[in-house]
Nucleic acid binder design. Structure first.
Lengths: 134, 134
DNA sequence: GTCAATTTGTGCGTATGTATG
DNA sequence: ACATACATACGCACAAATTGA
């Protein structure tokens, strides 16, 4: 499972293992991950290292933490499709703190920024909005 | 500066301080932050806590680490504009570790995902690519 | 309602490795 | 060769919130 002599850091190896379980469906949306203590004991590593691995998955937007209930596989949000107008441009970035609060964004969720030809910017939560060219 | 009795965690307070210095231009693009050890001594906190604060700024895409030279305010990348074809859809998410390495993405940089009508997905680094509806 | 157990959050210290200058 | 600086990993302790007996 975990190879301490490997080139890849232990916490990245654990993140890879958990990510694979999520992508394969072995850990489905809404399901809890084992507790940090449990993971540490199961894999013979420290809780600090487990937290690094889970931190990685949080920044990737794969899991959410409901403290102190546990850590859960993120459940996909219903997506609204927004059409693009002619000449509009699209970029993406991480939200500011204010935007995070305003849109109730989870960790690891970027925002889509639509810029109109006149320079007006519209910000959309990337987990709830997709854009389309009609 | 740092209030140990405050409600907000010490590492978040430090992240706030550094973020403010970056946003205000006091720390300009390309400029180095003080070293972790220096920040720890200056603010009377542990290096571990300093690393938590810097980790925060990294996930926000505000700084990059050039190990072991130091930690620097991120410099904006030149942007390529890619036109969208009819029927294509756009979403954004954080990259996996593998995608980060593949596209040489800095931390805190999302990817733009373009899905063609036939389901084919194209991934673009969001710091170097903008999309446009012609 | 109370109390104990569980779980994540925060913070500290230490040690070692690796790459740069 | 040496000092500097970030990365990884371990350990410990306590706080805060939830859950269930």
């Amino acid at each position: 499972m975990i190879d301490h002599s490997a080139d890849r850091a232990v916490f990245r190896q654990l993140a890879d293992l958990l990510r694979d379980q999520i992508k394969s469906g072995e850990l489905g949306p809404g399901e809890p991950l084992p507790s940090e203590l449990r993971l540490a004991q199961d894999y013979g590593i420290s809780r600090t290292t487990v937290r690094q691995a889970i931190g990685q998955l949080r920044t990737e937007g794969l899991v959410t933490v409901d403290r102190p209930r546990g850590t859960f596989v993120r459940v996909p949000e219903p997506v609204e499709v927004v059409p693009l107008a002619r000449g509009e441009r699209v970029s993406a970035r991480m939200p500011t703190d204010a935007e995070r609060r305003k849109h109730r964004l989870g960790e690891g969720t970027p925002v889509l920024v639509v810029t109109a030809p006149d320079g007006t910017e519209t910000v959309h939560p990337a987990d709830r909005v997709h854009l389309t060219r009609p």
